[in-house]
Design a protein around this nucleic acid. Structure first.
Lengths: 208, 208
DNA sequence: CACCTTATTGACGAGCCGTTCAATACGGAG
DNA sequence: CTCCGTATTGAACGGCTCGTCAATAAGGTG
């Protein structure tokens, strides 16, 4: 006996929310339609009705995941008088801290990343998203290079932006498996020392 | 009708080699005993006979993976007269280049990394291995800090070593999904500029 | 009220998968 | 040669999964 009806979009959201919970805790490969159905409180058949197949359910979940992930808001909270190095560092710190605060999101994102190695559609989607992400760092990197024309010989803005993104990804990977031992401040201090001796104590206001 | 017998260790190696191939190409979650058996040319039952369960087969494969992975050989090929910065950079470059040259190994390692999020035994094994890896960078990082006592205020050797490892991991993650577009030299140049203006053109000998 | 589109259910089949197990062949010890 | 432990096979079992489908309820429309 069927239950109460719900609008198309509302049901999809409900199912995707359940899928997010299941996939985030159990892992993407172990996420089954029956578990998602149980978590959402609906029948398994209904999930196939709204998303046609398990694969498309997971692709829809990837879209939801990327759409609801706030990446690098342009307004990094830092004084306008700060040096370019300080601004880039503030962005790095903000991103690293944000990542460690949403473990479910990190795990799920990397689950999709691994799936993208084999699945072309997932891979292209992720490549596009993280290309955007790297582009968001480009102006910050460019400002740093222009402020120090003599230092950084041969370094391109794309290179510095890519390096920043890789560092963030590496920290995310690290924090995934060892969240306790991962010390944001220690990493940030080391990065500060690398980027510039001038930007060392500009924004030591966040607690550990 | 059973086939020819083989010594215990030899059979295990044969099966593990097949498992490595299957897991490296199809992914860890999709690696089934039947596929490994087919790849090894033996019956499924034989795999359970030598490794008692699928789980233990995969744990044995993890051991094999870590045992046969050459990490950061102590003798980094660099002139003894080089600065500490150059030595650390040479180690970074060597590791990043090594990673991009063995895609199967990277994929498999990160597959286990994701599995380690849920499986405690896998997680502890990986934590131990990458702690060793970070320790291998510590003396290099310490030398850099001692050579520049005024720069890097408040930066610890552990922090700089951890940052180096995170950067390597980030590059590995990046190269996994976009191996073509990943430019080792661009990243390396950017890292050189960050670490020291002095070590900029010390080892630009590798082709792109 | 009558009707028709749509949402929802739960049972079902086909297909894998991991593991168990009886049967069987091999190879060395006596 | 005989015998016995061990390696090896392949079939069989139980369980889980995805996707299909007929049956059924819900809700808007006339």
């Amino acid at each position: 006996m069927p239950g109460s009806k719900a609008p198309e979009e509302e049901r999809r959201q409900q199912i995707l929310a359940a899928a997010f919970q299941v996939a985030g805790t159990q892992g993407l490969a172990e996420t089954t339609i029956l578990q998602v159905a149980a978590a959402a409180g609906v029948s398994p058949g209904l999930i196939i009705f709204h998303f046609k197949s398990r694969r498309q359910l997971l692709l829809a979940l990837l879209e939801e995941l990327l759409a609801t992930t706030t990446v690098l808001r342009a307004e990094v909270p830092v004084e306008a008088s700060a040096t370019p190095e300080t601004k880039l560092l503030a962005a790095l710190r903000q991103e690293i801290q944000r990542l460690t605060g949403e473990p479910l999101r990190i795990r799920l994102t990397f689950d999709y990343w691994m799936a993208g190695v084999r699945d072309a559609e997932t891979r292209e989607r992720l490549k596009a998203e993280f290309s955007r992400y790297r582009q968001a760092f480009r102006p910050l990197a460019e400002a740093v290079l222009q402020a120090n024309p003599d230092r950084f010989p041969g370094v391109t803005a794309d290179g510095l932006a890519g390096l920043s993104v890789s560092l963030i990804k590496g920290c995310a990977v690290q924090s995934m498996i060892d969240p306790e031992h991962f010390d944001v401040n220690e990493y940030f201090t080391a990065a500060s020392g690398l980027l510039a001796g001038a930007a060392r104590d500009g924004s030591t206001n966040a607690a550990s």
